[in-house]
Structure formats: structure tokens, C-alpha cells
Simulated scan of single mutants.
Amino acid sequence: MIRLEDRLKEDISEYAQLLQDLRRVRALGLPQCYIGAGYIRNYIWDRLHGYKHRDSHTDIDVVYYDPEDVREERDVQIENVLRRETGNPLWSVKNQARMHLRNGTEPYQSTSDALRHWPEVVTAVGARLNEQDQLDICAPHGLEDLYGLIVRRSPFFADRSAYLRRVEGKNWHLQWPKLTIIRD
């Protein structure tokens, strides 16, 4: 039986645009840097629903961890570079070393730790290409929910009402009807 991490790597390797974006992000040289969230999640949900590939993401999340430089301006500069290079306005870059301030939690210790605190387990997935051109996956909650089409609140995200507002506002169940959304 194929491990889910290997399955995700195989799925990503079949998506030329994502691989190109992963190379572009690797070239930035940011520490603990991944493309994550909806870019990967929506792509896998599309595959599992049998949809032909479609750009069903509202942003391209780039997350990294650098406690030495937490200036928001740095992220904006990187976003602008990526937008200019690609002509795509959907890039969103966030240094996870400062995101605890916005989220009202204790400081995160790494990108993986920050992802662990994201609202949904299924969204807490990142991918990067290492220097050997191999895919590395960051999925602190595992990949069972992603491939099981399950949306549930992360055990490290305390605000249930914010989770529910987010899930309802995204209308994922309309785009991907096979999803099981746990409102607990």
C-alpha cells in the first residue's frame, strides 16, 4: 500500500505549474519555506472528485520561518517579486515567526509548528523542493484528512466559532460535494 506522503509527492509531480512554482519559491532561499494550504488542498480535492485540473485557489500561500527578520514589509516585497515574475496576483507570503501575534497564540517554533495551529487539519499541508530536486512534505497532522476528504478543526485551533465561520464562508461543500465537514 502506498504511503499517503508518497501519494502526495506523486500527485504533485504530475502538476507542472505547481512544480514550476515550487522551483521559483526554492530560489528565494527562505528558511523552512513551503507552498501550502489551498494550492495543494484544492488540487488534491479536484483529483479526488475526478475534476479536470482547474485553478481553484484564491491565493498561493508561501510560508516560511525566520525569527531573525519578522518585518511584514519583507513579505510584501517577496510577494511583489513573485507577482512580477509570474504575472499572478494571488501570491501571499507570510513569515510564520510573527504570525502568532495575529493569531493570539504563543510564538511558533517552526513552520511545522505554525501549520499545526492553522484552523483546519486538511489545510495544514505544505510542499517544497529541496536542493536535490526532491519533494519534501510538511503535514503536522498527517494526510489522512486530505485524502479522506474530511474537513475538521485542528486540535490546536481553539476558536471553534472562527473555524465554523471560515468553513461556511469558503463554501467548499458546494465545489467539492464529497467532503465531510465536521462542525465539532
Rank of each mutant, 00 (worst) to 15 (best):
D61R: 05
D55S: 12
T58F: 14
D59Y: 10
V70F: 00
P67S: 06
I60P: 05
I60M: 10
I44H: 00
R47C: 14
R47S: 12
D46I: 03
R54A: 09
V62K: 01
T58H: 15
Y64F: 15
H53D: 13
W45P: 03
H49A: 07
D66L: 07
K52Y: 11
H57C: 10
G50Q: 04
D69L: 09
V63T: 12
H49W: 03
G38Q: 03
V63D: 09
L48P: 08
Y65G: 03
W45C: 05
A37L: 09
I60C: 08
G36W: 01
Y51S: 07
W45F: 09
W45G: 07
P67H: 07
D69N: 15
D69M: 11
S56T: 15
G38F: 05
V62R: 05
L48F: 05
Y65H: 10
S56Y: 11
Y51A: 03
R41C: 00
D66C: 09
I44L: 00
R47T: 13
G50K: 06
G36A: 07
H49V: 08
Y39T: 13
D46F: 09
S56G: 15
R47M: 13
Y64R: 02
D55E: 13
Y43Q: 09
Y65S: 01
Y39R: 14
K52R: 14
S56D: 11
R41H: 04
H49I: 02
S56A: 15
K52S: 12
H57F: 14
A37I: 06
D59Q: 00
I44P: 00
V70Y: 00
V62G: 05
I40S: 04
N42R: 08
K52A: 14
Y51E: 10
D46R: 01
H57R: 08
V63I: 15
G50S: 09
L48E: 09
D55G: 05
S56N: 12
D55W: 13
G36N: 03
T58S: 15
P67E: 01
T58L: 15
Y51D: 04
L48T: 01
R47K: 15
D46P: 04
D61E: 07
D59A: 11
V62Y: 08
H53Q: 13
G50A: 06
E68Y: 11
D61P: 02
D61L: 07
I44N: 02
N42D: 01
G38R: 05
D69V: 08
Y64C: 04
G50R: 01
H49Q: 08
P67F: 11
Y43H: 11
K52W: 09
I40W: 01
D66W: 12
Y64M: 12
I44Y: 01
L48H: 00
I40D: 08
D46C: 05
H57S: 10
V63C: 10
P67C: 10
D46S: 06
I44C: 05
I44T: 00
G50Y: 00
D66A: 10
V63N: 13
D69H: 05
S56M: 12
T58M: 15
R41E: 06
S56H: 10
W45R: 02
P67D: 00
